[in-house]
Design a protein around this nucleic acid. Structure first.
Lengths: 221, 221
DNA sequence: GCCCTATTTTAGTCTAACCTAAAAATTTGT
DNA sequence: ACAAATTTTTAGGTTAGACTAAAATAGGGC
């Protein structure tokens, strides 16, 4: 069965949101904010996706992707990230220019094309933003930790370690309420002094200097 | 003003048909056959394209592209052919596999992408089928190819392209052992059904129906 | 010039994907 | 526990782009 451009975007949004919120059910409003359309339109589409067995949908209770829906979403993500690598490494785009173009290219429908592109690029493991590229079977490779200051904005992150082991820093973390295993999401990135605001476990917000952020290690969930 | 995927396909069809028929007005039926839509749907779309000043449309009298429409059509053709070069030269697709994929890629909307792709490919002058690639300003290089069915007997001819890009036809050519750059010479011309016999590279002889010959483009050596 | 045939347009439907406004269900606060 | 606030769904409308069936127009042959 064919999945439209628009349906793919909904599946991708649901996949991203469910990762962000600990694999919980995703609500209609979350999707509507993410895609910037009205909640009523989302309900409409959810019914269509449920008919196609791409999601499990119980009215008022949110949605989850089925295996079929997850497979479709992951494939779109694979295509998106491979195209981003192509744009940056082969066509010399800057990493912050490629998103909108990849947003279009990700919907090109040809399995043979994806695999040949993957070969051409040398089977890269991550895109230019550091986000992992799932393999042809849909598996994401093991994550390598990066500094929080280098992490990409849209992903859900897990605190895995620190690179400054001083008592002062560890105390600072403790006072700030950050500990190993916490989930972080970058909310804002200030170009001026490279400070950031993060949300911890989807609850509190916290301001962090670049210095602090550069010493916190995270991996993409 | 934005031009949709579907509108681009209509403009491309009108451009191709008007070239095929000496820049005359293109009829509703010609377009409907070319795109395999019903004539009523075509009329519908012609009105929309006329509203957007992409075509000149007089009911019952056929259509012509305006300068704006021609510019849009040529840009789509440029994109299509550049992507075909990419697919064949970089991703190692065979020349008869690329049409359907390029048909999707041609609608990706980013001027910067086209120009960077053009640079990456070394600003090619023709696609893998021998069709010329217009430059960024929309100019085609000189083209003097004619249909094999219209070529004169006895001259040495070089295969430069095809006018039917269907997989079926390209496969047929491949099976018949005809490829770009081959030298052909017309040996016999049968008035009854306008079929011909050609000699390929001064070696093998091959029988070709008028239909096949009319879709092979050659230039006089 | 007029009839016949082929082409083209009009009129009315359909579906996907959006929208607004109103109703229904759920969650929250006290 | 129940009223208020929030979220979600329903109902009904819009647009692009397709369709079928019927009406209008154009063009060729006599």
């Amino acid at each position: 069965m064919l999945v439209s451009y628009t349906e793919e975007n909904y599946l991708k949004a649901i996949f991203a949101l469910s990762r962000l919120y600990n694999d919980q059910e995703v609500s209609t409003n979350q999707i509507s904010e993410h895609l910037k359309n009205k909640a009523a339109s989302v309900t409409d589409m959810l019914k269509r996706l449920a008919d196609k067995k791409l999601i499990d949908y119980k009215p008022y209770k949110g949605v989850k992707l089925t295996d079929k829906g997850k497979k479709t979403a992951v494939k779109v993500i694979r295509k998106h990230r491979l195209w981003e690598v192509f744009l940056v490494e082969k066509l010399n785009f800057k990493w912050d220019e490629v998103h909108d173009i990849a947003e279009q290219l990700e919907h090109i429908d040809s399995d043979k094309l994806i695999e040949k592109l993957d070969d051409f690029l040398g089977k890269p493991k991550a895109d230019p933003h550091g986000d992992p590229i799932p393999d042809a079977s849909g598996k994401f490779g093991v994550q390598k930790s990066v500094a929080l200051s280098d992490a990409s904005k849209r992903s859900a992150l897990i605190v895995t370690g620190v690179s400054d082991h001083s008592t002062e820093f560890l105390q600072f973390l403790s006072n700030s309420g950050i500990s190993l295993g916490n989930q972080l999401k970058i909310e804002e990135y200030n170009d001026y002094d490279r400070s950031i605001t993060v949300k911890i476990n989807n609850k509190r917000s916290l301001f962090l200097s670049h210095k602090a952020a550069s010493n916190i290690l995270v991996e993409i969930k």
